[in-house]
Design a protein around this nucleic acid. Structure first.
Lengths: 204, 204
DNA sequence: GCAAAAGTGTTAAAAGTACACCCATGG
DNA sequence: CCATGGGTGTACTTTTAACACTTTTGC
Protein backbone atom coordinates (compact mmCIF):
# COMPACT_ATOMS: atom_id res chain seq x y z
CA UNK A 1 0.00 0.00 0.00
CA UNK A 2 1.34 3.38 -0.98
CA UNK A 3 0.52 6.76 0.47
CA UNK A 4 1.17 9.98 -1.37
CA UNK A 5 -0.02 13.56 -1.30
CA UNK A 6 -2.53 15.05 -3.66
CA UNK A 7 -4.77 18.07 -3.85
CA UNK A 8 -7.68 17.88 -1.47
CA UNK A 9 -11.28 18.36 -2.46
CA UNK A 10 -11.15 22.06 -1.63
CA UNK A 11 -7.92 22.39 -3.55
CA UNK A 12 -5.78 24.59 -1.36
CA UNK A 13 -4.63 21.91 1.06
CA UNK A 14 -3.05 18.54 0.48
CA UNK A 15 -4.70 15.25 1.27
CA UNK A 16 -3.49 11.69 1.57
CA UNK A 17 -4.03 9.58 -1.50
CA UNK A 18 -3.26 6.01 -2.42
CA UNK A 19 -3.23 4.05 -5.67
CA UNK A 20 -5.75 1.27 -6.11
CA UNK A 21 -6.09 -1.38 -8.78
CA UNK A 22 -9.32 -2.61 -10.23
CA UNK A 23 -9.78 -6.34 -9.99
CA UNK A 24 -10.22 -8.00 -13.36
CA UNK A 25 -10.88 -11.48 -11.97
CA UNK A 26 -13.15 -13.09 -9.46
CA UNK A 27 -13.61 -12.80 -6.56
CA UNK A 28 -14.59 -9.13 -6.19
CA UNK A 29 -14.28 -8.56 -9.93
CA UNK A 30 -14.63 -4.87 -10.75
CA UNK A 31 -13.95 -3.71 -7.19
CA UNK A 32 -10.95 -1.65 -6.25
CA UNK A 33 -8.22 -3.29 -4.24
CA UNK A 34 -4.77 -2.62 -2.83
CA UNK A 35 -1.87 -3.52 -5.09
CA UNK A 36 -0.21 -6.77 -4.17
CA UNK A 37 1.05 -10.08 -5.39
CA UNK A 38 2.78 -13.33 -4.55
CA UNK A 39 6.00 -13.84 -2.62
CA UNK A 40 8.79 -15.38 -4.64
CA UNK A 41 10.81 -18.19 -3.13
CA UNK A 42 14.12 -16.36 -3.48
CA UNK A 43 13.20 -12.80 -2.53
CA UNK A 44 12.86 -11.17 0.87
CA UNK A 45 9.51 -9.87 2.04
CA UNK A 46 10.51 -6.26 1.42
CA UNK A 47 11.86 -7.11 -2.03
CA UNK A 48 8.61 -8.80 -2.92
CA UNK A 49 6.67 -5.76 -1.74
CA UNK A 50 8.82 -3.46 -3.85
CA UNK A 51 8.51 -5.66 -6.88
CA UNK A 52 4.75 -5.94 -6.61
CA UNK A 53 4.34 -2.21 -6.11
CA UNK A 54 6.50 -1.49 -9.12
CA UNK A 55 4.77 -3.99 -11.36
CA UNK A 56 1.32 -2.67 -10.61
CA UNK A 57 1.92 1.05 -10.22
CA UNK A 58 5.36 1.79 -11.66
CA UNK A 59 6.46 3.29 -8.36
CA UNK A 60 9.72 2.65 -6.50
CA UNK A 61 9.21 4.27 -3.09
CA UNK A 62 12.11 5.26 -0.86
CA UNK A 63 10.26 4.60 2.35
CA UNK A 64 8.96 1.08 2.82
CA UNK A 65 8.02 -0.62 6.04
CA UNK A 66 6.17 -3.70 7.12
CA UNK A 67 2.72 -2.88 8.38
CA UNK A 68 1.02 -6.04 9.61
CA UNK A 69 0.21 -9.56 8.55
CA UNK A 70 -3.44 -10.32 7.95
CA UNK A 71 -4.50 -13.94 8.12
CA UNK A 72 -8.12 -14.34 9.17
CA UNK A 73 -9.51 -17.54 7.73
CA UNK A 74 -12.41 -15.93 5.90
CA UNK A 75 -10.46 -13.09 4.30
CA UNK A 76 -10.88 -14.54 0.84
CA UNK A 77 -13.98 -16.53 -0.10
CA UNK A 78 -12.08 -19.16 -2.03
CA UNK A 79 -8.79 -20.16 -0.53
CA UNK A 80 -6.85 -19.31 2.60
CA UNK A 81 -4.74 -16.21 1.96
CA UNK A 82 -2.20 -14.68 4.33
CA UNK A 83 -1.12 -11.17 3.35
CA UNK A 84 2.07 -9.66 4.69
CA UNK A 85 1.27 -6.02 4.11
CA UNK A 86 3.90 -3.35 3.56
CA UNK A 87 3.27 0.32 3.31
CA UNK A 88 5.24 2.94 1.48
CA UNK A 89 5.40 6.71 1.26
CA UNK A 90 6.22 8.39 -2.01
CA UNK A 91 7.42 11.91 -2.57
CA UNK A 92 5.40 14.36 -4.56
CA UNK A 93 7.77 14.19 -7.53
CA UNK A 94 7.73 10.40 -7.51
CA UNK A 95 3.97 10.23 -7.40
CA UNK A 96 3.77 12.34 -10.54
CA UNK A 97 5.54 9.59 -12.47
CA UNK A 98 2.97 7.04 -11.42
CA UNK A 99 0.91 5.38 -14.06
CA UNK A 100 -2.76 6.10 -14.14
CA UNK A 101 -4.59 3.70 -16.36
CA UNK A 102 -8.06 2.32 -16.67
CA UNK A 103 -7.37 -0.11 -13.85
CA UNK A 104 -4.97 1.89 -11.67
CA UNK A 105 -6.16 5.08 -10.04
CA UNK A 106 -5.19 7.31 -7.11
CA UNK A 107 -7.97 7.96 -4.65
CA UNK A 108 -8.31 10.06 -1.48
CA UNK A 109 -7.51 7.93 1.54
CA UNK A 110 -10.36 9.21 3.69
CA UNK A 111 -13.07 8.77 1.06
CA UNK A 112 -12.70 5.39 -0.60
CA UNK A 113 -15.31 3.16 -2.19
CA UNK A 114 -15.84 -0.25 -0.58
CA UNK A 115 -12.76 -2.26 -1.40
CA UNK A 116 -12.28 -5.92 -2.16
CA UNK A 117 -11.53 -8.48 0.56
CA UNK A 118 -10.68 -6.90 3.93
CA UNK A 119 -8.77 -4.07 2.30
CA UNK A 120 -10.95 -1.44 3.97
CA UNK A 121 -9.68 -2.65 7.32
CA UNK A 122 -6.12 -2.70 6.10
CA UNK A 123 -6.32 0.91 4.93
CA UNK A 124 -7.90 1.97 8.22
CA UNK A 125 -5.16 0.21 10.16
CA UNK A 126 -2.46 1.82 8.05
CA UNK A 127 -3.97 5.28 8.48
CA UNK A 128 -4.00 4.81 12.22
CA UNK A 129 -0.40 3.74 12.23
CA UNK A 130 0.59 6.65 10.00
CA UNK A 131 -1.15 9.10 12.32
CA UNK A 132 0.53 7.63 15.33
CA UNK A 133 3.95 7.42 13.80
CA UNK A 134 4.04 10.93 12.39
CA UNK A 135 4.04 12.28 15.94
CA UNK A 136 7.33 10.74 16.96
CA UNK A 137 9.11 9.90 13.74
CA UNK A 138 10.25 12.11 10.85
CA UNK A 139 8.36 10.06 8.27
CA UNK A 140 6.39 13.03 6.96
CA UNK A 141 9.51 14.18 5.12
CA UNK A 142 9.19 11.08 2.95
CA UNK A 143 6.05 12.55 1.39
CA UNK A 144 7.85 15.64 0.11
CA UNK A 145 10.54 16.27 -2.47
CA UNK A 146 14.21 17.12 -2.08
CA UNK A 147 13.61 20.70 -0.93
CA UNK A 148 10.58 21.96 0.90
CA UNK A 149 9.39 24.85 3.01
CA UNK A 150 8.24 24.46 6.57
CA UNK A 151 4.75 25.46 5.45
CA UNK A 152 4.72 22.51 3.06
CA UNK A 153 5.92 20.20 5.79
CA UNK A 154 3.28 21.55 8.12
CA UNK A 155 0.70 20.97 5.41
CA UNK A 156 1.73 17.30 5.37
CA UNK A 157 1.33 17.01 9.12
CA UNK A 158 -2.05 18.68 8.95
CA UNK A 159 -3.19 16.36 6.16
CA UNK A 160 -2.15 13.32 8.15
CA UNK A 161 -3.39 14.48 11.54
CA UNK A 162 -6.45 16.27 10.19
CA UNK A 163 -6.06 19.25 12.44
CA UNK A 164 -4.44 22.65 12.18
CA UNK A 165 -1.06 23.26 13.76
CA UNK A 166 0.32 26.52 15.06
CA UNK A 167 2.94 27.68 12.52
CA UNK A 168 5.17 29.28 15.14
CA UNK A 169 5.27 26.28 17.44
CA UNK A 170 5.56 23.87 14.54
CA UNK A 171 8.63 25.69 13.31
CA UNK A 172 10.30 25.50 16.70
CA UNK A 173 9.51 21.85 17.20
CA UNK A 174 10.83 20.82 13.80
CA UNK A 175 13.96 22.91 14.17
CA UNK A 176 14.59 21.48 17.63
CA UNK A 177 14.20 17.94 16.33
CA UNK A 178 17.20 18.33 14.07
CA UNK A 179 15.56 16.35 11.28
CA UNK A 180 15.75 19.17 8.75
CA UNK A 181 18.45 21.64 7.76
CA UNK A 182 18.19 24.82 5.71
CA UNK A 183 19.55 24.67 2.19
CA UNK A 184 20.29 28.40 2.11
CA UNK A 185 17.90 28.83 -0.76
CA UNK A 186 14.50 30.49 -0.71
CA UNK A 187 11.30 29.91 -2.59
CA UNK A 188 10.28 33.01 -4.53
CA UNK A 189 7.05 33.56 -6.35
CA UNK A 190 4.48 33.75 -3.60
CA UNK A 191 3.04 37.16 -2.93
CA UNK A 192 4.57 37.26 0.48
CA UNK A 193 7.92 36.98 2.16
CA UNK A 194 9.90 34.15 0.48
CA UNK A 195 10.18 31.15 2.80
CA UNK A 196 13.43 29.39 3.48
CA UNK A 197 13.92 25.98 1.87
CA UNK A 198 14.97 22.95 3.91
CA UNK A 199 16.08 19.43 3.19
CA UNK A 200 15.53 16.31 5.20
CA UNK A 201 18.37 15.30 7.46
CA UNK A 202 17.72 11.76 8.56
CA UNK A 203 19.95 10.53 11.33
CA UNK A 204 22.61 8.11 10.00
CA UNK B 1 7.34 -15.77 22.21
CA UNK B 2 6.30 -15.33 25.79
CA UNK B 3 7.57 -12.89 28.36
CA UNK B 4 7.10 -13.37 32.05
CA UNK B 5 8.61 -12.18 35.29
CA UNK B 6 11.06 -14.14 37.36
CA UNK B 7 13.54 -13.50 40.10
CA UNK B 8 16.61 -11.70 38.90
CA UNK B 9 20.15 -12.87 39.47
CA UNK B 10 20.44 -10.81 42.65
CA UNK B 11 17.10 -12.11 43.81
CA UNK B 12 15.39 -9.06 45.21
CA UNK B 13 14.19 -7.58 41.95
CA UNK B 14 12.26 -9.13 39.10
CA UNK B 15 13.64 -9.72 35.65
CA UNK B 16 12.12 -10.55 32.30
CA UNK B 17 12.19 -14.21 31.41
CA UNK B 18 11.00 -16.24 28.48
CA UNK B 19 10.52 -19.95 27.83
CA UNK B 20 12.70 -21.63 25.23
CA UNK B 21 12.54 -25.08 23.72
CA UNK B 22 15.52 -27.23 22.89
CA UNK B 23 15.59 -28.39 19.31
CA UNK B 24 15.57 -32.14 18.95
CA UNK B 25 15.98 -32.16 15.16
CA UNK B 26 18.28 -30.68 12.60
CA UNK B 27 18.97 -27.92 11.79
CA UNK B 28 20.38 -26.39 14.98
CA UNK B 29 19.83 -29.62 16.90
CA UNK B 30 20.50 -29.11 20.61
CA UNK B 31 20.22 -25.32 20.44
CA UNK B 32 17.54 -23.38 22.22
CA UNK B 33 14.82 -21.78 20.15
CA UNK B 34 11.58 -19.86 20.49
CA UNK B 35 8.43 -21.95 20.66
CA UNK B 36 6.53 -22.10 17.42
CA UNK B 37 4.86 -24.26 14.88
CA UNK B 38 2.87 -24.44 11.68
CA UNK B 39 -0.24 -22.49 10.74
CA UNK B 40 -3.32 -24.63 10.25
CA UNK B 41 -5.53 -24.00 7.25
CA UNK B 42 -8.62 -23.31 9.33
CA UNK B 43 -7.26 -21.25 12.23
CA UNK B 44 -6.49 -17.57 12.45
CA UNK B 45 -2.95 -16.36 13.00
CA UNK B 46 -3.62 -15.54 16.64
CA UNK B 47 -5.29 -18.90 17.20
CA UNK B 48 -2.33 -20.68 15.72
CA UNK B 49 0.01 -18.71 17.98
CA UNK B 50 -2.06 -19.61 21.04
CA UNK B 51 -2.21 -23.24 20.08
CA UNK B 52 1.51 -23.50 19.46
CA UNK B 53 2.34 -21.76 22.72
CA UNK B 54 0.04 -24.05 24.61
CA UNK B 55 1.33 -27.22 23.01
CA UNK B 56 4.95 -26.43 23.71
CA UNK B 57 4.76 -24.65 27.06
CA UNK B 58 1.30 -25.36 28.49
CA UNK B 59 0.61 -21.64 28.77
CA UNK B 60 -2.54 -19.80 27.71
CA UNK B 61 -1.59 -16.11 27.93
CA UNK B 62 -4.19 -13.38 28.23
CA UNK B 63 -2.18 -10.82 26.34
CA UNK B 64 -1.20 -11.79 22.81
CA UNK B 65 -0.18 -9.49 19.99
CA UNK B 66 1.41 -9.81 16.61
CA UNK B 67 5.02 -8.72 16.68
CA UNK B 68 6.46 -8.90 13.18
CA UNK B 69 6.80 -11.22 10.25
CA UNK B 70 10.30 -12.43 9.50
CA UNK B 71 10.97 -13.68 6.01
CA UNK B 72 14.60 -13.25 4.98
CA UNK B 73 15.51 -15.87 2.42
CA UNK B 74 18.43 -17.32 4.38
CA UNK B 75 16.67 -17.59 7.77
CA UNK B 76 16.67 -21.35 7.63
CA UNK B 77 19.46 -23.28 5.93
CA UNK B 78 17.16 -25.80 4.31
CA UNK B 79 13.90 -24.41 3.06
CA UNK B 80 12.29 -20.99 2.85
CA UNK B 81 10.50 -20.24 6.11
CA UNK B 82 8.32 -17.22 6.85
CA UNK B 83 7.56 -16.76 10.55
CA UNK B 84 4.65 -14.64 11.69
CA UNK B 85 5.79 -13.96 15.22
CA UNK B 86 3.41 -13.23 18.07
CA UNK B 87 4.41 -12.23 21.54
CA UNK B 88 2.57 -12.77 24.77
CA UNK B 89 2.77 -11.63 28.36
CA UNK B 90 1.88 -13.99 31.17
CA UNK B 91 0.98 -13.11 34.71
CA UNK B 92 3.07 -14.32 37.56
CA UNK B 93 0.46 -16.87 38.65
CA UNK B 94 0.12 -18.20 35.13
CA UNK B 95 3.83 -18.58 34.67
CA UNK B 96 3.98 -20.77 37.75
CA UNK B 97 1.81 -23.34 36.04
CA UNK B 98 4.17 -23.55 33.11
CA UNK B 99 5.83 -26.81 32.40
CA UNK B 100 9.54 -27.01 32.85
CA UNK B 101 10.96 -30.12 31.29
CA UNK B 102 14.23 -31.30 29.89
CA UNK B 103 13.51 -29.47 26.65
CA UNK B 104 11.53 -26.47 27.88
CA UNK B 105 13.17 -23.95 30.16
CA UNK B 106 12.67 -20.34 31.25
CA UNK B 107 15.71 -18.16 30.77
CA UNK B 108 16.49 -14.50 31.56
CA UNK B 109 15.71 -12.37 28.53
CA UNK B 110 18.82 -10.24 28.76
CA UNK B 111 21.26 -13.13 29.11
CA UNK B 112 20.44 -15.84 26.59
CA UNK B 113 22.67 -18.40 24.92
CA UNK B 114 22.99 -18.17 21.12
CA UNK B 115 19.66 -19.30 19.76
CA UNK B 116 18.74 -21.24 16.66
CA UNK B 117 17.95 -19.54 13.34
CA UNK B 118 17.53 -15.77 13.65
CA UNK B 119 15.81 -16.05 16.99
CA UNK B 120 18.37 -13.81 18.69
CA UNK B 121 17.25 -11.00 16.43
CA UNK B 122 13.62 -11.75 17.07
CA UNK B 123 14.10 -11.57 20.84
CA UNK B 124 16.03 -8.32 20.52
CA UNK B 125 13.29 -6.86 18.37
CA UNK B 126 10.61 -7.93 20.83
CA UNK B 127 12.50 -6.47 23.78
CA UNK B 128 12.80 -3.16 21.99
CA UNK B 129 9.11 -3.13 21.24
CA UNK B 130 8.24 -4.05 24.82
CA UNK B 131 10.40 -1.24 26.15
CA UNK B 132 8.84 1.23 23.79
CA UNK B 133 5.30 0.13 24.40
CA UNK B 134 5.47 0.08 28.17
CA UNK B 135 5.89 3.85 28.15
CA UNK B 136 2.56 4.64 26.54
CA UNK B 137 0.44 1.54 27.07
CA UNK B 138 -0.75 -0.20 30.24
CA UNK B 139 0.86 -3.38 29.04
CA UNK B 140 2.89 -3.96 32.20
CA UNK B 141 -0.25 -4.92 34.13
CA UNK B 142 -0.41 -8.07 32.01
CA UNK B 143 2.71 -9.35 33.74
CA UNK B 144 1.12 -9.26 37.18
CA UNK B 145 -1.70 -11.13 38.86
CA UNK B 146 -5.22 -10.05 39.70
CA UNK B 147 -4.19 -7.82 42.57
CA UNK B 148 -0.91 -6.04 42.93
CA UNK B 149 0.71 -3.20 44.81
CA UNK B 150 2.11 -0.15 43.11
CA UNK B 151 5.55 -1.25 44.23
CA UNK B 152 5.11 -4.49 42.33
CA UNK B 153 3.95 -2.60 39.27
CA UNK B 154 6.89 -0.27 39.54
CA UNK B 155 9.14 -3.27 39.80
CA UNK B 156 7.79 -4.47 36.46
CA UNK B 157 8.46 -1.13 34.84
CA UNK B 158 11.96 -1.09 36.24
CA UNK B 159 12.64 -4.62 35.02
CA UNK B 160 11.49 -3.71 31.53
CA UNK B 161 13.09 -0.29 31.34
CA UNK B 162 16.19 -1.28 33.29
CA UNK B 163 16.28 1.90 35.31
CA UNK B 164 15.00 3.04 38.67
CA UNK B 165 11.83 5.10 38.90
CA UNK B 166 10.90 7.57 41.59
CA UNK B 167 8.21 5.90 43.73
CA UNK B 168 6.35 9.13 44.45
CA UNK B 169 6.17 10.27 40.84
CA UNK B 170 5.42 6.78 39.60
CA UNK B 171 2.43 6.59 41.91
CA UNK B 172 1.04 9.86 40.66
CA UNK B 173 1.53 8.99 37.01
CA UNK B 174 -0.17 5.62 37.31
CA UNK B 175 -3.05 7.05 39.32
CA UNK B 176 -3.50 9.86 36.81
CA UNK B 177 -3.55 7.39 33.93
CA UNK B 178 -6.69 5.75 35.29
CA UNK B 179 -5.51 2.29 34.33
CA UNK B 180 -5.66 0.92 37.86
CA UNK B 181 -8.16 1.15 40.66
CA UNK B 182 -7.78 0.31 44.35
CA UNK B 183 -9.46 -2.86 45.53
CA UNK B 184 -9.83 -1.58 49.07
CA UNK B 185 -7.67 -4.39 50.36
CA UNK B 186 -4.15 -4.15 51.70
CA UNK B 187 -1.19 -6.47 51.61
CA UNK B 188 -0.12 -7.36 55.11
CA UNK B 189 3.00 -9.20 56.14
CA UNK B 190 5.78 -6.85 55.20
CA UNK B 191 7.58 -5.22 58.06
CA UNK B 192 6.36 -1.82 57.08
CA UNK B 193 3.13 -0.02 56.39
CA UNK B 194 0.80 -2.33 54.42
CA UNK B 195 0.50 -1.19 50.82
CA UNK B 196 -2.82 -0.76 49.10
CA UNK B 197 -3.78 -3.37 46.52
CA UNK B 198 -4.91 -2.39 43.03
CA UNK B 199 -6.41 -4.16 40.08
CA UNK B 200 -6.00 -3.42 36.41
CA UNK B 201 -8.72 -1.35 34.86
CA UNK B 202 -8.35 -1.68 31.14
CA UNK B 203 -10.49 0.68 29.14
CA UNK B 204 -13.49 -1.17 27.63
C1' DG C 1 0.18 51.05 0.95
C1' DC C 2 -2.07 46.63 1.63
C1' DA C 3 -2.66 41.68 1.92
C1' DA C 4 -0.47 37.51 3.06
C1' DA C 5 2.49 34.43 4.83
C1' DA C 6 7.35 34.16 7.09
C1' DG C 7 9.48 34.38 11.15
C1' DT C 8 10.36 36.09 16.33
C1' DG C 9 9.03 37.02 21.16
C1' DT C 10 6.47 36.45 25.29
C1' DT C 11 3.63 34.43 28.60
C1' DA C 12 0.82 30.95 30.87
C1' DA C 13 -0.40 26.25 31.60
C1' DA C 14 0.89 21.53 31.94
C1' DA C 15 3.87 17.80 32.53
C1' DG C 16 7.92 15.87 34.32
C1' DT C 17 11.65 15.65 38.07
C1' DA C 18 13.84 15.81 42.52
C1' DC C 19 13.60 15.30 47.12
C1' DA C 20 12.00 16.34 52.01
C1' DC C 21 9.10 14.39 55.24
C1' DC C 22 5.25 12.02 57.76
C1' DC C 23 2.73 7.27 58.31
C1' DA C 24 2.06 2.51 59.68
C1' DT C 25 3.69 -1.83 60.37
C1' DG C 26 6.93 -5.97 62.17
C1' DG C 27 10.36 -7.08 64.94
C1' DC D 1 11.84 2.48 69.39
C1' DC D 2 13.83 1.64 65.11
C1' DA D 3 14.21 0.08 60.36
C1' DT D 4 11.54 -0.15 56.14
C1' DG D 5 8.87 0.82 52.57
C1' DG D 6 4.06 3.34 51.89
C1' DG D 7 2.30 7.54 50.91
C1' DT D 8 1.92 12.99 50.66
C1' DG D 9 3.67 17.70 49.88
C1' DT D 10 6.22 20.98 47.50
C1' DA D 11 9.46 23.44 44.84
C1' DC D 12 11.85 23.50 40.47
C1' DT D 13 12.62 22.55 35.52
C1' DT D 14 11.18 21.39 31.01
C1' DT D 15 7.75 21.01 27.57
C1' DT D 16 3.72 22.46 25.33
C1' DA D 17 0.37 25.67 23.84
C1' DA D 18 -1.60 30.28 22.71
C1' DC D 19 -1.16 34.42 20.56
C1' DA D 20 0.75 39.25 19.81
C1' DC D 21 3.88 41.32 16.87
C1' DT D 22 7.53 42.40 13.34
C1' DT D 23 9.48 41.28 8.56
C1' DT D 24 9.47 40.81 3.58
C1' DT D 25 7.58 39.95 -0.51
C1' DG D 26 3.78 40.66 -4.81
C1' DC D 27 0.49 43.48 -6.46
Amino acid sequence: MIFGLGASAEGSRSALQLPLVRRVREPYRGRWALPGGPLGATESLADAARRNLFETTGLAPRYLEQLYTFGAVERSPDERVVSIVYWALVRADEADQARTTENVRWMPADDLPPLAFDHDEIVAYALGRLRGKVEYSPIAHALLGEEFTLAELRDVYEAVLRRALDPANFRRQIEASGTVEPTGRFLAGGRHRPPRLYRSRVAP
